[in-house]
Design a protein around this nucleic acid. Sequence first.
DNA 1: GCCAACGTTGGC
DNA 2: GCCAACGTTGGC
Length: 160
Amino acid sequence: MATRKRQTWLFKSEPNVYSYADLERDGRTHWDGIRNYQARNLLRDDVKEGDGVLFYHSNAKPMAVAGVARVVREAYPDASQFDPKSKYHDPKSDPGDPTWLMVDIAPVAACPESLTRDALKDEPALAEMMLLRRGSRLSIQPVSAREWKRIMTMAGIRDA
DNA sequence: GCCAACGTTGGC
DNA sequence: GCCAACGTTGGC
């Protein structure tokens, strides 16, 4: 059986909702609340334990890659879809065949504050990044090996 | 606060 | 199945 190469991702979070500092405090977290089919399919099919994650702060000042995380548990049903009190409640989801999934992630290393969206935009090697394309709303995005390497270099993180 | 870019919903 | 209306995301 061939060894799967680790893949890398970018997860968006609004830091006033859940920040990288919150993840460091918690030690690990359920990445719940994904309610977009494209993102769900990535979680279901492609995001695997050990994969690298760029923890991106969206709708923030500054917008930035705040830290690096790692997938510590692969996709399983997102409990919040069955919780009527949750803002992520989905009454259409069948408990026998849950619509929405989540993964668990844990922190690896914080990034320097200089790793902002503007800094990424100024980097020619990252010109093709999905994050920087207009209208890119997907909350879970693939990051290429080259992009990942470049960003680790910018962050001064040796291996993550 | 604005609004472009999408995704979803629902009438037909 | 089409598509207009609506809601959300998220950068600016």
